[in-house]
C-alpha cells in the first residue's frame, strides 16, 4: 500500500481528499501547513504528497523547495492541489519540482487521473 501525505489548511479539503485517496488504496497522513508537512516527511517519507499552495506558517511552494533540498531521501511524487489556477503559478510549481498540478475544484476522477499519470496507481 502506498502512502500519501495530504497538506492543506482546510480540514474539509483534507477530509474529502482522504476519502478519495483511501478509496484508491492509499495510507493517509495529514498536515495543516508546510512546516508540519516537513516535520512529517522528516519522520517518515511518504510516496506521494498532495499539496495546497496557500497555507499559514509555510506555503506549499516553500515546503516543496525545502523538500526537494532534502538529501539522501527517497523523494516523493508531489501533486499540487490548489485554487491558484493561472499559468505563472503552474510554471513556478513545475520549476520547483512538482510532478503534477490539480486546479481546484477537484473530484475523484481528476485525482485518480493525475495519480495514474504520475505512476502512483
Amino acid at each position: 500500500m502506498k502512502s500519501c501525505l495530504i497538506v492543506d489548511d482546510s480540514k474539509v479539503v483534507r477530509m474529502v481528499a482522504r476519502k478519495i485517496l483511501e478509496g484508491l488504496n492509499f495510507a493517509i497522513d495529514e498536515a495543516e501547513d508546510g512546516q508540519k508537512a516537513i516535520e512529517a516527511c522528516e519522520k517518515s517519507m511518504p510516496d506521494a504528497v498532495l499539496l495546497d499552495w496557500n497555507m499559514p506558517v509555510k506555503s506549499g511552494i516553500e515546503f516543496l523547495v525545502d523538500l526537494r533540498a532534502m538529501k539522501d531521501v527517497e523523494q516523493p511524487v508531489v501533486v499540487f492541489c490548489t485554487t491558484e489556477n493561472d499559468m505563472s503559478h503552474i510554471q513556478k510549481a513545475i520549476q520547483a519540482g512538482a510532478n503534477e498540478y490539480i486546479m481546484k475544484p477537484f473530484d475523484s476522477e481528476i485525482i485518480e487521473s493525475k495519480f495514474t499519470q504520475v505512476g502512483l496507481i
Binding site: N85, D86, M87, I90, Q91, I94, A98, E100, Y101, I102, M103, F106, E109, I110, S113, K114, Q117
Partner: peptide, 23 residues
C-alpha cells in the same frame, strides 16, 4: 474547460501547448 484539461493531460503539456483564457 478546466475540468477537461485535467482529465488525462499531463501538466507539462498543458503549460507547453495551451494558453489560458480566464477559466
Amino acid at each position: 474547460s478546466q475540468f477537461e484539461v485535467q482529465r488525462g493531460l499531463p501538466i507539462n503539456l498543458l503549460v507547453k501547448y495551451f494558453t489560458q483564457m480566464e477559466d
